[in-house]
Design a binder for these strands. Structure first.
Lengths: 118, 118
DNA sequence: CTTCACAGGGAATAATTATTCCCCCACTGA
DNA sequence: TCAGTGGGGGAATAATTATTCCCTGTGAAG
């Protein structure tokens, strides 16, 4: 997406995973695709807090990392769908763990975040 | 840590969790504390790719979020230790899921990251 | 011919986050 | 007095990442 100037430390597994999953909307995108929201325009509508451009960029990154793959249907009107790869499906337990923790601790986090409500 | 200008979307659990866990070194810090690396200087040595200042800042944030708590021993020389709170312990499954995925997919990620080796 | 839906990208800019540099305090040991 | 250890912070700067704005192209519908 952007060009990195500083090398990263990919020693520990945590950093490897964070490298792939970090990105404001990536986990949401993976979750969405997994739930069957496969087309770009659907994702744009579903994650409407993010600008479409951002979703596109993060989709491209996820594709580069081999988390999702893109299927372009030849017909017209244009139709594109994204799917999780096998490796991408492997991230689902992580996503689920994140989601679960977040839901269980929503109250607490809401109390302690400075202002960031929406 | 910094002052946020744009409100966040904490609708879905994923975003809530990412808010608390995102930060280049936070998951490593949580993991370290959980493994018994409790003192700041120990953490500095253990996570030596990060500047001490950064660790300090992320520790403060984690404390604000109630993930860790800080115990200051009155004696001298100074001694400080951090512990996971109950809520902090709740993040361990997430951290473990991240670590596991990262370790299982190290090879793959190494192949696809542009250059970022270290 | 105009407008719409669909998929997408370049460039500039804004926001966020990490990092470096250099400082503080209290005590200990030489 | 001087250096070293242990915990820490302010300010500036650099790097990273998100967002906005506006543009491309094709075909279908009106």
């Amino acid at each position: 997406m952007y060009e990195r100037k500083i090398p990263e430390d990919l020693e520990c597994g945590i950093n490897i995973a964070m490298k792939v999953l970090s990105g404001k909307w990536k986990p949401c995108i993976i979750d969405g695709i997994n739930r069957g929201i496969r087309r770009p325009s659907e994702l744009h509508m579903h994650i409407d807090a993010a600008a479409p451009r951002v979703i596109n960029m993060q989709l491209r990154e996820l594709e580069e990392y081999g988390i999702i793959c893109k299927k372009v249907y030849p017909g017209l009107p244009l139709k594109v769908e994204y799917y999780l790869t096998e490796i991408g499906e492997g991230t689902l337990p992580v996503i689920r763990a994140l989601d679960q923790w977040g839901n269980e601790n929503r109250e607490h986090v809401m109390k302690v975040v400075p202002q960031g409500q929406e």
